[in-house]
Amino acid sequence: MSAAEVPSHLLMEALDWVQQGRAEDALELVESLAEGRNGAQVAGYEELLRARLMEEYRERLPDAARLRRKLEGSELLSFNLPAGAGFLISMLDGETPVSDLVALSGMDPFDARRNLNRLIGAGIVELVS
């Protein structure tokens, strides 16, 4: 399958979102299409979106930044978090720089940064000033 093949309208919509500055939403949409008929093409867009978002995540959360938990106990448990996010939360100590957290997690660095950004967005984790 090549780039010349016509992508689905959803794929086009995802690309429009990128132009509107909604690259994260675009990636989520593209990921949901991964099982579709344009498998290889979708994977290609996924790769490009991941590479592009990685840079955004790094700008938002620099390598040297330090994070700590904002919520504990039942407040924390009320969230519907994936295991990867739970693992990252368990590693937060307010001292380890983000770049080390990502390396130590052993996770795909993109997934680790994405989870950390989401945790900050959800108010579960905060930057140590």
Binding site: S2, A40, A43, G44, E47, L48, R52
Partner: peptide
């Protein structure tokens, strides 16, 4: 390896090796 190339002016170009 199955090789594919995907390109879009808004994103760039990715060569995929499955």
């Amino acid at each position: 390896a199955e090789v594919e190339t995907v390109a879009d002016p808004r994103l760039g170009r990715s060569t995929l090796l499955r």
